[in-house]
């Protein structure tokens, strides 16, 4: 929770277990086989600086910096959002999950990062898995894994490189 991790080796796996109202935010460069996963807990840091991955507004720039440092190219980055469920309405009784999802979308918009797919909302917890070179999956408690993004043989990055060479 409030943590992030980056991997750049095929077969490496990043996992966020039990995402309730939290968001598992993955940023992927499929061509470079680099991805990062942040476990975002709350929408707004209100100036709080650490831990940066805990809040949507600080987690997005931090995760971008980390995947770029690991060899990703900014223009190839794609985002996957998992989680943001409405669990108990104990406490502030506001829908933290929905606010988290909205805040992550806004922060990605500011950074001009494309959202490939979202698996958010509902009232059940999910587990997010990023398997470098293979896929990104979301799994409900006791359910099967759903594939949300496939690294696949056709990578957008390699297509872009071909276009560049033809010019």
């Amino acid at each position: 929770m409030g943590e992030l991790a980056v991997a750049g080796t095929v077969g490496d796996e990043l996992v966020a277990i039990g995402l309730g109202s939290c968001i598992g935010l993955a940023l992927v460069d499929r061509a470079a086989n680099v991805a990062g996963l942040a476990h975002v807990v709350l929408p707004d840091s209100q100036g709080q600086q650490v831990p940066r991955a805990k809040f949507a507004d600080t987690a997005v720039p931090e995760l971008i910096a980390c995947v770029l440092a690991a060899g990703a190219l900014r223009r190839r980055l794609e985002a996957v959002l998992i989680g943001g469920a409405r669990m108990f309405s104990v406490g502030a009784s506001l829908d933290v999950g929905a606010r988290n999802a909205e805040a992550v979308r806004e922060a990605l918009g500011r950074e001009r990062i494309r959202i490939h797919v979202e698996e958010v909302g509902g009232n059940r917890g999910r587990t997010a898995r990023v398997i470098i070179g293979t896929e990104i999956t979301s799994q409900l408690a006791g359910g099967p894994r759903t594939s949300l993004l496939s690294f696949g043989p056709q990578r957008p990055g390699s297509t872009l490189r071909t276009v560049g060479a033809l010019r």
Partner: peptide
């Protein structure tokens, strides 16, 4: 005490969702 709510799910999802609200902006 408020009205009880019951749900069966992953422990992490349940505990984190409740703690996220009680912890607020501290860590």
């Amino acid at each position: 005490p408020g009205t009880p709510q019951v749900m069966t799910d992953l422990l992490g999802a349940i505990v984190a969702s409740v703690l996220a609200q009680s912890v607020g902006h501290g860590d």
